[in-house]
Each structure stands twice: as C-alpha cells, then as structure tokens.
Amino acid sequence: MPDDFHQNVIKEFRANRGKVGGPFEGARLLLLTTTGARSGARHTTPVGYLPDDDGRVLVIASAAGAPRHPAWYHNLVAHPRVTVENGTFTYDAEAVVLRGDERERAFARAVESDDGWAEYQARTTRVIPVVSLLAIEDGPPNVSGETTFGGVLTRIHDGLRREIALIRAEVEASGASLGAQLRINCLALCAGLRNHHTGEDQGMFPMIAQQYPETAPVMARLAEEHKKIDALLAELRRTVSEPAADARATLADVDRLAAELEAHLAYEEAQLIPLFDR
C-alpha cells in the first residue's frame, strides 16, 4: 500500500487509541516499528495480528499475496528487537519467525479465522511467514501517550472494552462452533483481564486505601467486583475449553462478562479519576 495511506492509518490509530476506519475497521491491528535492515532507520507499519499463547502475538507477512516479503519482515529478520503499539501499551518485543509445524499450525488457525489469509497464500509461490512477537519485560508498562494517572486508567479500560467488543463480534460471526484461534482469543482476554485485576488488587488499591483511608468502602467494593468478574472469566474459560465449544454458550458468557465489566469500569473511573485529578 502507498506510504501516505500507511501514514494516515498510523495517525488515526494513535489519535483514536487503536481504532481505525476504512479497510481496517473492526480488525485486529497494531503498529510495528522495525529497524531498517540496510538503513538502520526506524520504520512504523500497521499490520494485522492474532493473539497467541503465553502473551505472544502473531503477525503474518502476507503483503496481500505479493511475490516478495514485505520490507518490515526483512527488517525484523535483520534486527529482531521491535516496538509494538496496540492502542493501549507501547512495548519492545523479540520477533521470532515460526518454522515447520509451529508455523503450519499458526497459519492454519489464521486461515480458519479468516480465509483471506488462504487467498493471499494462493496468490504467491512463496511461503508466507508467520512471526511471533514476545514482549520484553523492561520496567513498568508504558501506556501509550498518557502522562496522568486518570489518563492511564482510562486508556487501559478502553483497551479492555475494545478487546471484549472484538471478541464478541468474532464469536457472533463464528457459526455454530468455535475455531482454535477464537478459543485462543478468548483465553488471552481472560488472562489479560485477570492479570490487570491482580495488579490492582496487589498494588494500586492497597496504595490508595493507605493514602486515602476514606476510600476504604470504594476499594472494598472494587475488590468484590473483581471476584465476580473472576468467576465469569472462569466460566468463559470452561466454555471455550470444551472439545466442541458452542458459540451460543460462549456468546452468552461474553455478554455476561461484558455487562459486569462495563459496570465495574464505569464505577472505578467515576470514583478514582477525580481522586487522581486531585
């Protein structure tokens, strides 16, 4: 695609916290920044992604079925340390090109979730690469473009809202049963949301309660809501882990989780953002 098109997508992505319109509307998209294989200059490209196990994400070097690999692929082969922006966090990651059976399984999951990947492969004689991006732990998370506690909280919450909306749309469009990739998407949401709440329970909430004793009832309510949400996450994990996971049952679980989560996020924002602003 022309560079000016990419630049417009990048601007829209950053301005709207990961949401874009046009051909990428409703798609899973991230910004991948690589180091030029020859120039050493930094290049940012919007690419589609798939969640994977262990917190990894996968990107596919399809170039829409072009005869050559995209430039960003050659860059990360030469310089595997890359930067990822997902609309909420910006982080460094290690890029690993999948090989053999691991690549075949990952690409098969991608095709099962969207047959456009198969169409791209059919257009070219090259084997389209699948690349794993694993975050490099290096200090606290960098919440993209935010400098205040209230801004950080809102951006993280909006990322959770966006992810659960994506999964709901994917489940609704899946037919009677869930494919392997959609199961991974659901399990990745469960893991991410539980990690976020664990961090709040063990870090932010005790700190606020200690500094502002008058917030003890609020902190107690938020902690109790975390338990309710954790129970809904456990139910969703059970549903999608069934050998023949039913899409209708999964959609019902996602809807219950979405309703409980939105009420929780709205209450947390209403209580904590004014406190942070003080």
Rank of each mutant, 00 (worst) to 15 (best):
S39D: 11
L261C: 09
A209S: 14
E146F: 03
F24I: 01
A180C: 05
N195A: 14
V254W: 01
N75L: 10
G22A: 12
R81I: 15
E102R: 15
Y73P: 01
L133V: 06
E94W: 04
D53T: 13
V77T: 06
H157V: 13
I156A: 08
I60E: 00
M204N: 05
F89T: 09
G179A: 08
L261Y: 03
L160M: 13
L193Q: 11
L261H: 04
E242S: 11
Q7N: 10
S177V: 12
H197A: 09
N75I: 06
D138W: 05
D4R: 13
T154F: 03
A220K: 14
T147Q: 08
M204R: 11
R256A: 15
P46C: 07
L29I: 14
E242H: 12
E172P: 06
G150E: 04
T198K: 09
H79P: 01
K227Y: 00
A66D: 09
N8G: 12
R56I: 01
D4Y: 10
D114E: 12
A106F: 03
G40P: 06
S177D: 07
T147V: 11
D138Y: 04
G65N: 08
Y91T: 05
P70R: 01
V111P: 04
G175Q: 04
D3L: 14
A249Q: 14
T198M: 08
